[in-house]
Amino acid sequence: NRHQFAPGTFSGVLQCLVCDKTLLGKESLQCSNCNANVHKGCKDAAPACT
Results as ranks from 00 to 15, higher is better:
Asn1Pro: 02
Asn1Thr: 13
Asn1Glu: 07
Asn1Ser: 10
Arg2His: 09
Arg2Ala: 01
His3Pro: 01
Gln4Ser: 06
Phe5Met: 11
Phe5Ile: 03
Phe5Glu: 01
Phe5Asp: 03
Ala6Lys: 15
Ala6Thr: 10
Ala6Trp: 02
Pro7Tyr: 04
Pro7Ser: 07
Pro7Val: 05
Pro7His: 08
Gly8Arg: 03
Gly8Asn: 06
Thr9Ile: 09
Thr9Arg: 04
Phe10Asn: 11
Ser11Ala: 12
Ser11Pro: 13
Ser11Val: 07
Ser11Asp: 15
Ser11Lys: 12
Ser11Cys: 05
Ser11Gln: 14
Gly12Pro: 02
Gly12Glu: 13
Val13Asp: 15
Val13Lys: 15
Gln15Ile: 09
Gln15Ala: 09
Gln15Thr: 09
Cys16Gly: 01
Cys16Ser: 01
Leu17Thr: 11
Leu17Ser: 08
Leu17His: 04
Leu17Gly: 09
Leu17Ala: 12
Val18Lys: 05
Val18Pro: 01
Val18Met: 06
Cys19Ala: 00
Cys19Pro: 00
Cys19Asp: 01
Asp20Tyr: 05
Asp20Pro: 02
Asp20Cys: 07
Asp20Ile: 03
Lys21Asp: 12
Thr22Ile: 04
Thr22Met: 08
Leu23Cys: 10
Leu24Asp: 15
Leu24Thr: 15
Gly25Ile: 06
Gly25Met: 12
Gly25Leu: 05
Lys26Trp: 04
Lys26His: 03
Glu27Leu: 02
Glu27Val: 02
Ser28Asn: 08
Ser28Ile: 06
Ser28Lys: 02
Ser28Trp: 03
Leu29Val: 10
Leu29Met: 10
Gln30Pro: 03
Gln30Lys: 07
Gln30Ala: 10
Gln30His: 08
Cys31Met: 00
Cys31Gly: 01
Cys31Pro: 01
Cys31Asn: 02
Cys31Tyr: 00
Ser32Lys: 14
Ser32Asp: 08
Ser32Arg: 10
Asn33Ser: 10
Asn33Gln: 13
Asn33Met: 10
Cys34Asp: 00
Cys34His: 01
Asn35Trp: 04
Asn35Glu: 14
Ala36Asp: 03
Ala36Val: 14
Ala36Ser: 08
Ala36Tyr: 12
Ala36Thr: 11
Asn37Trp: 05
Asn37Thr: 14
Asn37Pro: 13
Val38Ser: 05
Val38Asp: 00
His39Asp: 05
His39Trp: 00
His39Lys: 02
Lys40Asp: 15
Lys40Ile: 12
Gly41Ser: 11
Gly41Asp: 13
Gly41Met: 13
Gly41His: 06
Gly41Gln: 09
Lys43Asn: 09
Lys43Pro: 04
Lys43Ser: 09
Lys43Ile: 12
Asp44Cys: 08
Asp44Pro: 12
Ala46Trp: 05
Ala46Ser: 11
Ala46Glu: 03
Pro47Ala: 09
Pro47Thr: 10
Ala48Cys: 07
Ala48Asp: 13
Ala48Leu: 08
Ala48Phe: 15
Cys49Tyr: 03
Cys49Trp: 01
Cys49Val: 03
Thr50Cys: 06
Thr50Phe: 15
Thr50Pro: 05
Thr50His: 02
